[in-house]
């Protein structure tokens, strides 16, 4: 058992090491242009150098801050509206087209409009991220409250539970697992958009550093920031998964896998 786990771990580390070695070799062989593909060794040197400066951590925080702010706004709007709309067939039908439009809309396309009106600021970043994450959160909250077990709905009807109570005591709690999924998708989207907005709008953060370094021809620095952004995305997604499974411990095993 234990030995098996060791082999698994070994193979996983092996794959990653192999990849890094291949990266190094390709970069050194001159197959790829130096400015496009710096060797891993150079990137890690830049990464360590960066991590020793406070400006590096400022960039990390700026990206995270924008993502969190936008995400919180989106959650504050998306959850209540989603639950209520999902609860009412009338609202659901009426808003269907707008929702479908909104969820397929690439929020980042709004960036130029907001850059023009608010400049390259954290406000712009927050607004675009909020617009981008509100839909995943809304849609999941909406499905959650819509998918209340029909038997429970019938019970509520049979006992003539008032609509307000049906909403707060039945629709909302049954929507929680789905809302959690929405929040997880939302925060991942928030990080992605945060980087995108920084790259395009020149708004301070990791994205801006990547673009800036690349423009200066310092591609090793750009890659160091890309790795940082990836680690940030990875950490946020792992953390949100952990929070979700911890909060949903009570949930009976799902029947759909």
């Amino acid at each position: 058992m234990r030995q098996q786990r060791m082999t698994v771990l070994g193979s996983q580390i092996g794959v990653i090491l192999a990849l890094l070695v291949i990266w190094e070799l390709i970069a050194r062989s001159g197959l790829a242009a130096e400015n496009a593909f710096p060797p891993f060794s150079a990137v890690s040197v830049e990464l360590v150098k960066g991590m020793l400066t406070s400006s590096y951590w400022t960039a990390v925080w700026q990206t995270l801050q924008g993502a969190l702010q936008g995400f919180l706004v989106a959650a504050a709007v998306g959850i209540p509206v989603g639950v209520v709309v999902g609860f009412s067939p009338f609202l659901e039908r009426s808003s269907r087209i707008l929702v479908d439009f909104g969820r397929s809309f690439p929020a980042i396309a709004l960036l130029p409009i907001f850059v023009l009106s608010y400049g390259s600021t954290i406000t712009t970043k927050t607004i675009v991220i909020a617009v981008g994450c509100v839909f995943p959160i809304f849609v999941q909250s909406f499905y959650g409250s819509r998918r209340v077990d029909p038997a429970i709905v019938e019970t509520a009807k049979a006992f003539r539970i008032p609509a307000g109570m049906q909403l707060t005591r039945i629709a909302l709690p049954s929507a929680v697992p789905s809302i959690m999924t929405g929040l997880r998708l939302g925060i991942t989207m928030a990080v992605l958009l945060s980087i995108g907005v920084e790259i395009l709008g020149g708004i301070p953060g990791l994205g801006q550093r990547i673009a800036g370094a690349q423009q200066d021809g310092a591609s090793a620095v750009a890659f160091a920031y890309i790795l940082t952004a990836s680690a940030l995305g990875f950490a946020v997604s792992k953390l949100s998964q952990a929070v979700e499974s911890r909060l949903l411990r009570w949930r009976p095993p799902t029947t759909v896998s």
Binding site: V8, Q12, L192, I195, Q214, A229, S237, K238
Partner: peptide
């Protein structure tokens, strides 16, 4: 199983970061 940590990392990275490069 061997590639799963790698896949996990790749899909949660903000791929947009690669645009400038």
């Amino acid at each position: 199983v061997a590639v799963s940590p790698l896949l996990d990392f790749m899909r949660s990275m903000p791929q947009i970061a690669l645009v400038p490069v």
